[in-house]
Design a protein around this nucleic acid. Structure first.
Length: 913
RNA sequence: GCCGGGGUGAUGGAACUGGUAGACGUGCCGGACUCAAAAUCCGGUGCCUGAAAGGGCGUGGGGGUUCGAUUCCCCCCCCCGGCACCA
C-alpha cells in the first residue's frame, strides 16, 4: 500500500476495474429485489456544472448503498437533448443544433464517467435521436385518436420585429430579448394534452406517494387547485350585435363553446324577454349580495362586442395585449380597467350591475369573467378604490360580540378600511340570507340560482390543459398531416418516425421547418392528395415525461417499452432539483397514467403502475459567493471567485477582497446560485483534476443535506481532501504493522469495548442516516468522529489491533457509497485478494451496544445545572433521590421543597421549585 | 401578486418524536515539528461578566402554549424556488 493518498491513480484503477467487470450492468434475471435509482437527466449544455455533480453523486450514493444492502440496482443515464439553448448556440456559432448537441453529449459523458458513477451505460438514451422520439410520436398519434390531444387557439408572445414567437424567458420587461421590440400577445392554433381530464386522479394519487416530500405534494395539490364553488350567470338583453359573437371568437375557452359562455335562452328570472348570459365562477358565493360590478378579461367576447362602438375601450383592450403571457407579470402589474358601459342583471337581486374590462382577469381560467365583491376580495377592493366603485359589506366576523380588528367588519370600531375583509363569517345586508354561515349561505344561494336556471354548484380546477406546440426547429416533430379534405390526420405507424433534418441552422426568425418544402410537402395518408406536414415541434417537457420508462427497454424496436418495463417500474428513487417540483414531476405523473391507459405496459399490468416515482428527493441549489467591480459605464463586471483573494479579520470575518491579477479591491456581493450571469460558477472539472472525484463527491455530500442549498467553499473542499488523507494514512499505518488475528470474546480491554461501542453505534447511525433519513452529511460526520476516536485509541496488543482492523474495515465499507474509488483501494489493502464490489454494508453488532450506565442531565426550573450517571435499570425513585442529593441541586434549592419532579427516561430530570 | 421553502457562533451546518443548543468541518488563536515556510500533529474557540468557581444572555423580530420551545401556535421582517414557451 502506498504511504500517500494519490487519487489520480487510485481512481483510474478503480474505474478500470468496474468497467472490466461490468459491475454496473443491470440484469432482469437477478433473484435479488430490484432497485431502480434515477437522477434527472441533464440537458447537454456544454459541460457539467456543480448541480449535476451534486445530483448524480446523491443518486450514486443511494445506488451503491442499496447494492451493498443486497439489491439488484439499475442506475441509467441519458440526455434531455432537445431545447432552446441549442438554437441560440447555433445562431451564435453558425453550427447546426444537432452537431452542437452531440459534441456536448460526448464531452459530458466523459465527465460523468470521471466521477466514477455506477451507471449502466448500455441503457443510455438521447431524446433527439429518431430511435427515441419515434415512440413519442407513436404515443402522440394514439392519444390524438383517443381525443386526449386536441387543437385550439392560445396566446403566445409575439415579437413583431423578428416575426417570431418568444419563450417567456425571452421576454424581458415586456420586450423581446434580441429585438427590444414591445412584445404582443398573439393567438395561434396549438395542440393540447387534456391533462385536466386526469386532474382528479393526479390530485388523489398524491396521497399514495408516501415517499415524496410533503412540500412537493402540497405545491402540486395547490397547482391542480381543486375548488368547490358556484358557476352562475348574469343576464343582459341585447340590442343587436350578438350576431357578431360567432363561435370562432370564443377561442381560448377550450371546452366550452362561446355559445355556452354567452348563451341565449328565454328566462323567467328577472323580467321576461330574450336574455344573454354572462357566466362567472366563484368560491365565495356567500358574498354574492355584495357584488357591485363584474370584471371580464380583455379577450372576452363581450369586451370585443362592447368595443365595437367604443374606440376608447378598443384602445384599452389593444393596450392589454402588450406585455408577456407569464402569470407572474399579469399578477404583479398595475391593475387597470375600463367601464364597458354595459350593464348585466344580478341573478338574485335583479339589480343592474356595471361590466368592466380588467387587465387582471385571466381568459384562460374559468369563464374569463369574475363577479367583483370589493368588500370581501383584496383585488376587487383595490380596483374599486381606484375607480371609485361602490363597496357593499355583506359579511361580518363569526363570533357575535367579538370585537374584530378589521375596519370593514361592522363589529369593529376601526374606521378607514385599507383592505378587504376576506375572512369567512356570517351574512349581513343579504336579505333572506342574513345570519347564515358560509356553508348554509352557499347552499341556499346555489339552490336559488338553480331554481332560476341561472347556476349551480361546480367543482373547478386551476390546472389548465397543457399546450405542447412550439414554433421551433430543435424539437420532436408533431406527427400530423394537414389535408384539405381529411383534416388533421395522424401519421400512420409505418411512416414513423417523422425525422427532423439535422443539418439546419436556424436564423432566429420564424420556424425553419415552415420554410422547408422538402420537409412539409407530403401526401395525405388517408386520401393520397397533396397535403402539408405540421411544422411545429413538441414542448421539450414531453421527452422528459417518459424517459424513465424507456430506460427499462432502451433498445426496444417493437414498442415504446417491452416486458422489461414491468420488471423495473416504478422508479424506486428519483432525485432532482426542487425547481422541477411542479411542472416536470406533474407531467411525468400524467404520462405514466397515459401510458397505462394506452396499454403500453400490457394488459392487466396496471397494478403498481399508477405512479412513476415511488420515492423522491428534491435537491437544493449549489450557491457560491459573488464578486464584482463597477465599470465606468455603471455596469457591474462580475469576477469569478477563483480569481479573488478574500481577506479576513482576526476573527475570520471577511473584511475585503482583491483581484489576484492586479491586487486591487473588488466588491463582495451576495451568495447566489452558481450562474453564468454572475460569473460565480466553479468548474467541477478543475476540482476533479486537482483533488480527484472522491474529494468532490465527499465535499458535496458533507457540506449540507441534499434538500438544502449548498454553499461552495474552497476551504471546505480542502477539509474533505484532508479527511481522505487521514483515512488513508490510518489504514496505511495499520496495514504496515502486519496481519492481525481475530480477537476472542472476553479478552477485550475496557478501552477496546468502548471503541467497539462507538464503532457499532456509528454503524447503526450511518445505516439510519443513509437508508432512512438520506442525510449523508451526518453519516460522514459520524465517520469523522469515529476516525478521531480511533486516533486516540492506541492499543498495540493483538486483540487491540484486531479492534483497529474491525474499525478500519467498517469505515471503508461505510464510506464506500460516497467515496468508492478510495474505499475500493482501502479494502484491497485491508483484505488482500478480496473485492469491495462483493461486500455487504455492515450491520451493528447488538452485543457491542449494551451499556451498563447512562448519563442524565439535571435541570432546575428548566435550566441545566449538572449531570448524573446512573445504572441503566435504576428506578425512578433512585434517580429522584440521587438527583436531590446532587451538590448543585442542594445548593440551588437552598432548603426549598420541589413542587414537581419530571423524569424523562434516558434523558433528564427537571426539578421544579 | 399567488403557491412552497428557508433564517442557528466568524462560517457551512448538527440537534431525527417538545428534553444537554452549536456534533462534524472550515476559519481564527496558541503550541509542537522546522533554519524558515508549507504540510502534519496537539490544545482552545457562541456572546457578556468574573482571578476562578460560577452567573447572565443566546437559534431573524415581537407575542403565546409548556415544568421545559431552534422544534408547536399567532403576527411581522428578510432571503430563495416555482408561476404553465428556460430546463
Amino acid at each position: 500500500m502506498q504511504s500517500n493518498y494519490h487519487p489520480a491513480s487510485i481512481e483510474k484503477q478503480a474505474q478500470q476495474h468496474w468497467n472490466d467487470s461490468g459491475a454496473f450492468t443491470a440484469s432482469e434475471t437477478s433473484d435479488k429485489p430490484k432497485y431502480y435509482c434515477l437522477s434527472m437527466f441533464p440537458y447537454p449544455s456544454g459541460k457539467l456544472h456543480m448541480g449535476h455533480v451534486r445530483n448524480y453523486t446523491i443518486g450514486d450514493v443511494l445506488s451503491r448503498y442499496h447494492r451493498m444492502k443486497g439489491y439488484n440496482v439499475m442506475q441509467p443515464m441519458g440526455w434531455d437533448a432537445f431545447g432552446l439553448p441549442a438554437e441560440n448556440a447555433a445562431q451564435a456559432h453558425n453550427v447546426p443544433p444537432a452537431a452542437w448537441t452531440y459534441d456536448n453529449i460526448n464531452y459530458m459523458r466523459r465527465q460523468l464517467q470521471s466521477l466514477g458513477l455506477g451507471i449502466d451505460w448500455s441503457r443510455e438514451v438521447t431524446t433527439c435521436t429518431p430511435e427515441y422520439y419515434r415512440w413519442e410520436q407513436w404515443l402522440f398519434t394514439r392519444l390524438f385518436e383517443k381525443g386526449i390531444i386536441y387543437k385550439k387557439t392560445s396566446s403566445v408572445n409575439w415579437d413583431p420585429e423578428d416575426q417570431t414567437v418568444l419563450a417567456n424567458e425571452q421576454v424581458i420587461d415586456g420586450r423581446g430579448w434580441r429585438s427590444g421590440a414591445l412584445v404582443e400577445k398573439r393567438d395561434i392554433p396549438m395542440y393540447f394534452f387534456r391533462i385536466t381530464q386526469y386532474a382528479d386522479e393526479l390530485l388523489q394519487d398524491l396521497d399514495t406517494l408516501s415517499g415524496w416530500p410533503e412540500q412537493v405534494k402540497t405545491m402540486q395539490a395547490n397547482w391542480i387547485g381543486k375548488s368547490f364553488g358556484v358557476r352562475f350567470a348574469f343576464e343582459y338583453s341585447t340590442e343587436g350585435g350578438t350576431e357578431s359573437l360567432s363561435p370562432a371568437s370564443g377561442r381560448e375557452l377550450g371546452e366550452r363553446a362561446v355559445a355556452d359562455t354567452l348563451s341565449s335562452s328565454p328566462s323567467p328570472a328577472c323580467g321576461g324577454g330574450k336574455k344573454e348570459k354572462l357566466w362567472v365562477y366563484t368560491t365565495r358565493a356567500d358574498t354574492i349580495m355584495g357584488v357591485t360590478f363584474v370584471a371580464i378579461a380583455a379577450e372576452h367576447p363581450l369586451a370585443t362586442l362592447a368595443a365595437a362602438n367604443n374606440p376608447a375601450l378598443a384602445a384599452f383592450i389593444e393596450d392589454c395585449k402588450h406585455g408577456g403571457t407569464a402569470e407572474a407579470d399579469m399578477a404583479t402589474m398595475e391593475k387597470k380597467g375600463m367601464d364597458t358601459g354595459l350593464k348585466v342583471t344580478h341573478p338574485i337581486t335583479c339589480e343592474q350591475v356595471p361590466v368592466w374590462v380588467g387587465n387582471y382577469v385571466l381568459m384562460g381560467y374559468g369563464d374569463g369573467a369574475v363577479m367583483a365583491v370589493p368588500a370581501h376580495d383584496e383585488r376587487d377592493f383595490g380596483f374599486a378604490k381606484k375607480y371609485d366603485l361602490p363597496i357593499k359589506v355583506v359579511i361580518r366576523s363569526e363570533e357575535r360580540g367579538a370585537r374584530s380588528e378589521h375596519p370593514l367588519d361592522p363589529q369593529s370600531s376601526i374606521l378607514n378600511p385599507e383592505s378587504a375583509f376576506v375572512d369567512y363569517g356570517v351574512c349581513i345586508n343579504s336579505g333572506k340570507y342574513d345570519g347564515l354561515d358560509y356553508d348554509q349561505a352557499v347552499d341556499a344561494i346555489a339552490a336559488d340560482l338553480t331554481a332560476k336556471d341561472l347556476g349551480e354548484k361546480k367543482v373547478q380546477f386551476r390546472l389548465r390543459d397543457w399546450g405542447i406546440s412550439r414554433q421551433r426547429y430543435w424539437g420532436c416533430p408533431i406527427p400530423i398531416i394537414h389535408c384539405a379534405t381529411c383534416g388533421d390526420v395522424p401519421v400512420p405507424d409505418d411512416q414513423l418516425p417523422v425525422v427532423l433534418p439535422e443539418d439546419v441552422v436556424p436564423d432566429g426568425t420564424g420556424s425553419p421547418l415552415a420554410k422547408m418544402p422538402q420537409f412539409y410537402e407530403t401526401t395525405c395518408p388517408k386520401c393520397g392528395a397533396a397535403a402539408r406536414r405540421e411544422t411545429d415541434t413538441m414542448d421539450t417537457f414531453v421527452e422528459s415525461s417518459w424517459y424513465y420508462a424507456r430506460y427499462t427497454s432502451p433498445d426496444c424496436t417493437t414498442g415504446l417499452v417491452d416486458e422489461r418495463a414491468k420488471h423495473w417500474l416504478p422508479v424506486d428513487q428519483y432525485i432532482g432539483g426542487i425547481e422541477h417540483a411542479i411542472l416536470h414531476l406533474l407531467y411525468a405523473r400524467f404520462f405514466q397514467k397515459l401510458m397505462r391507459d394506452v396499454g403500453v405496459f400490457g394488459e392487466g399490468a396496471t397494478q403498481n403502475l399508477d405512479e412513476p416515482f415511488k420515492n423522491l428527493i428534491t435537491q437544493g441549489m449549489v450557491i457560491a459567493p459573488t464578486f464584482y467591480r463597477i465599470e465606468a459605464n455603471g455596469k457591474k463586471l462580475w469576477i469569478n471567485p477563483a480569481e479573488v483573494d478574500v481577506k479576513n479579520d482576526e476573527r475570520g470575518r471577511p473584511v475585503g477582497a482583491t483581484l489576484r491579477a492586479d491586487g486591487l479591491p473588488v466588491i463582495i456581493g451576495g451568495t447566489e446560485k452558481m450562474s453564468k450571469s454572475k460569473n460565480n460558477g466553479v468548474d467541477p472539472q478543475a476540482i476533479i483534476d486537482e483533488y480527484g472525484a472522491d474529494t468532490a463527491r465527499l465535499f458535496m455530500m458533507f457540506a449540507a443535506p441534499p434538500e438544502q442549498s449548498l454553499e461552495w467553499s474552497d476551504a471546505g473542499v480542502e477539509g474533505s481532501f484532508r479527511f481522505l488523507k487521514r483515512v488513508w494514512k490510518a489504514t496505511h499505518d495499520h496495514v504496515e504493522q502486519g496481519v492481525v488475528a481475530a480477537y476472542r470474546k472476553g479478552e477485550l480491554s475496557s478501552a477496546a469495548k468502548a471503541m467497539r461501542l462507538q464503532l457499532h453505534q456509528t454503524i447503526q447511525k450511518v445505516n439510519d442516516d443513509i437508508g432512512r433519513r438520506k442525510t449523508f452529511n451526518t453519516a460522514i460526520a459520524a465517520n469523522m468522529e469515529l476516525l478521531n476516536a480511533l486516533g486516540k485509541y492506541n492499543d498495540p496488543t493483538p486483540s487491540g489491533r484486531a479492534v483497529v482492523q474491525e474499525t478500519l474495515e467498517a469505515i471503508a465499507l461505510m464510506l464506500n457509497p460516497i467515496v468508492p474509488h478510495t474505499c475500493q483501494a482501502l479494502w484491497s489493502a485491508l483484505r488482500p485478494g478480496s473485492d469491495m464490489l462483493d461486500q455487504c454494508f455492515p450491520d451493528a453488532d447488538q452485543s457491542a451496544l449494551v451499556q451498563d450506565e447512562i448519563e442524565l442531565m439535571i435541570q432546575i426550573n428548566g435550566k441545566l445545572r449538572g449531570s448524573l450517571t446512573v445504572a441503566k435499570d435504576a428506578t425512578r425513585e433512585n434517580i429522584e433521590q440521587a438527583a436531590l442529593a446532587h451538590e448543585a441541586v442542594v445548593k440551588q434549592l437552598a432548603g426549598a421543597t420541589p413542587t414537581k419532579i419530571i423524569v424523562v427516561p434516558n434523558r433528564l430530570i427537571n426539578i421544579v421549585a
